[in-house]
């Protein structure tokens, strides 16, 4: 709905140790993120899946994102830039 915030549950381990499996986070809905922000976005390869990764580089078109647990992450190294229209928001609080 129109709320600018959203609670999301984390599944998987590619963002460990920052985010753990089963953890909840509060995200702010926005397309703007800085380097180092944790971004929540639609999987560029599968519309219905939501992913969470960290912004490693910015470009005019979008973000290059990488998982913190770098050896166990499927991220921009595989699917390339996450375009702005795919971005849902960024993590502003972890519970």
């Amino acid at each position: 709905m129109g709320l600018p915030f959203k609670i999301i549950k984390i599944q998987g381990r590619s963002m460990e140790p920052s985010l753990k499996e089963g953890q909840f986070v509060l995200i702010r809905k926005t397309k703007k993120a800085k380097l180092g922000d944790i971004l929540v976005f639609r999987d560029p390869e599968y519309e219905r899946r939501i992913l969470v990764k960290r912004v490693q580089a910015l470009s005019k078109e979008g973000y290059f994102v990488v998982g913190d647990n770098i050896s166990e992450s499927r991220d921009s190294r595989k699917f390339g830039t996450v375009y702005f229209d795919r971005v849902i928001g960024k993590v502003i609080m972890k519970f």
Partner: peptide, 20 residues
């Protein structure tokens, strides 16, 4: 939040490893 999740089903963000 886990308790609330049982009723409202929060969206899940996947942080899956390599190729899921």
């Amino acid at each position: 939040l886990n308790l609330i999740d049982k009723f409202v089903n929060f969206d899940i963000a996947e942080a899956h490893c390599d190729v899921p």
